[in-house]
Amino acid sequence: MSIDPSSIPNFGARPEPQPETGPAGPVIPDQDLVKQLLDQMELKYLVDDEGDLAAPWEEFRTYFMFRGEEEQRVFSVRTFYDRPHDIEQKPKILEVIDDWNRRTLWPKVYTHTHDDGTVRLIGEVQMLIGVGVSLEHFVSSTVSWVRASIEFDKWLVEQLGLEADIEADGDDKPDAED
């Protein structure tokens, strides 16, 4: 099974007309299909110790996981946002992510409080794939979910006023000319 590069949504540019073809039958996506899609999106990825596919960014990691058996098989895209927040910030964070969850379809975001008191965010979305899905639906959904995960991080930085923290972190890094 192969992904047609023209089937990857471009979100903003006008699509070029495609020749009329009949609909492809349902596919049951697997990790190789996701790897192919990530390659075409020019995203770096790795396979972790548990066998899950992960795409790392600077402030978060997105995992592409398959769980369940046969007709109950689920494809899950889960993003772990690495930026730690103090437990005192949790009420404000909950208010902000509730706003995100009301306004958007995906990813749905929730908090996880670690034993040391830091709060981190996790975004998640799933698709039931056990009986098969159209390739076009799988590709467009996965691409949309990845882009929405990236957009959530940008949105959160704006909502919590973290731009100054990010710029300050960048000042500690050596310049390319040094």
Rank of each mutant, 00 (worst) to 15 (best):
T104R: 15
T79W: 02
D115R: 06
Q31W: 01
E88W: 04
D98C: 07
P107H: 10
F60C: 08
D86W: 06
G117I: 03
R67E: 12
D86C: 04
I129M: 02
D86R: 14
Y110G: 09
E50Q: 14
M65H: 04
L105I: 06
L121V: 07
H85K: 02
R83T: 15
F75M: 12
E124D: 15
V34H: 00
R61I: 12
R102V: 08
F64I: 03
H114F: 12
V125A: 14
E71R: 09
D115C: 01
R73C: 10
K44Q: 11
V47H: 06
D30V: 09
A54F: 10
E88S: 13
Q31C: 01
Y45L: 01
G117L: 09
Y81D: 01
L105C: 07
G68I: 05
Y45N: 00
E71N: 12
D115G: 05
E70M: 09
P107Y: 04
G51T: 12
G51R: 07
R83M: 14
R67W: 10
L38K: 01
E69T: 13
T104C: 08
H114K: 09
D39R: 06
K92M: 14
R83F: 12
E70W: 03
V109A: 01
E42A: 14
L53W: 04
Q126H: 13
A55Q: 08
L121C: 11
T113I: 13
F80V: 13
R120A: 03
H112A: 08
V119Y: 02
P107E: 05
Q36I: 00
V131R: 14
L33Y: 00
D82M: 05
T111K: 02
R83G: 04
W100D: 07
E50I: 07
F60L: 15
V119R: 02
R78Q: 14
R73T: 15
D49E: 14
D86E: 14
V131C: 09
L38M: 02
E59S: 10
L121G: 07
F60W: 12
D48W: 09
D48L: 06
V47N: 02
L121H: 08
Q36Y: 00
E42L: 05
P84K: 06
L46D: 09
R102G: 03
V74I: 15
F75P: 05
E124W: 10
E88Y: 03
F64H: 02
D52A: 12
R103N: 12
E88D: 14
G117E: 05
T79Q: 06
D30S: 12
E50R: 15
E58L: 12
K108S: 04
D99M: 05
D49L: 09
N101H: 03
H114Y: 08
R73P: 08
V125Y: 06
V96N: 05
G130L: 05
F75N: 05
D49Y: 07
L53R: 08
P84G: 03
Q40A: 00
Y63F: 15
E50Y: 07
K35E: 00
V109F: 01
I28C: 05
Q72R: 15
T62D: 01
I129K: 00
I87M: 11
L105V: 08
E69I: 10
P29M: 08
E69D: 14
E59N: 11
H85D: 01
G25H: 04
S76V: 13
H85P: 02
I28V: 14
P84Y: 06
L33K: 00
T79K: 02
L38Q: 00
F60T: 06
I129P: 00
D115F: 05
Q126N: 14
R61V: 11
